[in-house]
């Protein structure tokens, strides 16, 4: 998943006694593992939080096309070019299912798009980092898709039916992307001296931004507690980050690459790796629009939308003409 810092109601989780009967029934259904469907009653906070989360996830898929699209025209072989094209096409497809899932909550794709373009809604911080060498296509697949999967697998069990179902399909494709990314890293890490240097450099640049994808520690956040009670969020950010580090460090070792963290070490007692936190000041700057590529990404999306206005208007006008001709013919 590419959702970070999702605001919720801002108040603490209600006890069953504080809920009215409708809300209590809703919560009991979630607690029992039931799914909420679009026509079911839901608290307004649940609906709004889901729109923010699904919308942010969809926007991330859309903006996420840009750093990878950056290398499609420079991919080094026809096969790599085809794999990358297929991946970016999958991402646009994920964006589409997610916008459809959000639409079931009563918000249109155009409204969400406007909020992305105005900067009111966010997308994942990770896509504000540049892809500078071909090894970055490996690192994005391996680390970024790896972190996304870590978040998305539990969301297949999220309480909102359309979101959970979208996630099942998305997870299948994401695991394929991650394997492809790791495959690029293997080639680079086992390649020439220059290729190995590119691979290490990609890991150096993408390691901490990948850890940031899980968001800051949220153990004390009221948003997080409410979202977990609603099963919109299934694990804490720290749990997922730890799991990601534990999974990724041995893979880096296998590649013969060094994780850029002098304090990284296996903690026998905890049964986990100890690791350094990313620079959270940098994270908040990136969220505030000061990432290395933030301005470029927003400019590219706004330009695409503005340049495409005549196309959308043209196709709409044609559809209306066709409709009125059909009516006239009746």
């Amino acid at each position: 998943m590419y959702a970070q810092m999702i605001r919720s109601t801002g108040s603490k989780v209600k006890t069953p006694e504080e809920m009215d009967p409708q809300e209590r029934a809703f919560q009991e259904r979630i607690d029992a593992g039931g799914k909420i469907e679009p026509r079911d009653w839901m608290p307004e906070g649940y609906r709004r939080t889901l729109i923010r989360q699904i919308g942010q996830h969809a926007h991330s898929e859309i903006v996420g096309q840009l750093p990878e699209g950056n290398w499609i025209t420079r991919a080094p072989t026809l096969e790599r070019k085809a794999i990358l094209l297929a991946k970016v096409q999958d991402e646009a497809g994920h964006g589409l299912y997610l916008y459809c899932a959000a639409e079931t909550l009563g918000v249109s794709r155009d409204e969400l798009t406007r909020d992305l373009l105005s900067g009111k809604m966010k997308y994942s911080s990770i896509f504000n980092y540049p892809t500078l060498t071909w090894a970055d296509m490996g690192a994005v697949g391996w680390l970024v898709d790896g972190a996304a999967i870590m978040n998305q697998v539990p969301l297949q069990r999220t309480s909102y039916g359309p979101y959970a179902r979208a996630m099942v399909r998305i997870c299948k494709e994401e695991s394929f992307h991650q394997r492809q990314g790791f495959d690029i890293m293997m080639k680079m890490a086992n390649g020439t001296k220059e290729q190995r240097a590119m691979a290490q450099d990609a890991l150096d640049r993408f390691w901490y931004p990948s850890l940031m994808m899980f968001g800051p520690s949220d153990e004390n956040s009221v948003h997080s507690a409410q979202n977990m009670a609603w099963k919109i969020k299934m694990n804490t950010n720290d749990e997922l980050r730890q799991k990601f580090v534990d999974q990724t460090v041995p893979q880096a070792e296998f590649l013969g690459l060094t994780v850029p963290d002098a304090d990284l070490k296996w903690n026998e007692e905890r049964g986990h790796y100890d690791f350094s936190e990313p620079d959270w000041d940098e994270f908040f700057e990136v969220l505030a629009g000061n990432g290395p590529c933030s301005a470029d990404r927003m400019e590219a999306r706004n330009k695409a939308w503005d340049d495409g206005a005549w196309v959308r208007e043209g196709l709409l006008a044609h559809a209306e003409k066709k409709k009125s001709r059909a009516v006239a013919a009746e």
Binding site: I62, Q65, L66, E68, G69, I72, T73, L78, E79, K81, A82, L85, A86, V88, Q89, A92, G93, G95, L96, Y99, R109, A300, R301, K303, A304, W305, D307, G308, A309, V311, R312
Partner: peptide
């Protein structure tokens, strides 16, 4: 066609253009 990646006028076109480019690259091989 692949130069359009991520900047098409509407999401459905992003998907369709990527799909067209993908077919063409496959045929090239």
């Amino acid at each position: 066609v692949s130069e359009w990646c991520g900047v098409a006028p509407v999401l459905e076109e992003d998907i369709a253009l990527a799909n067209t480019a993908l077919d063409l690259i496959g045929q090239t091989t």
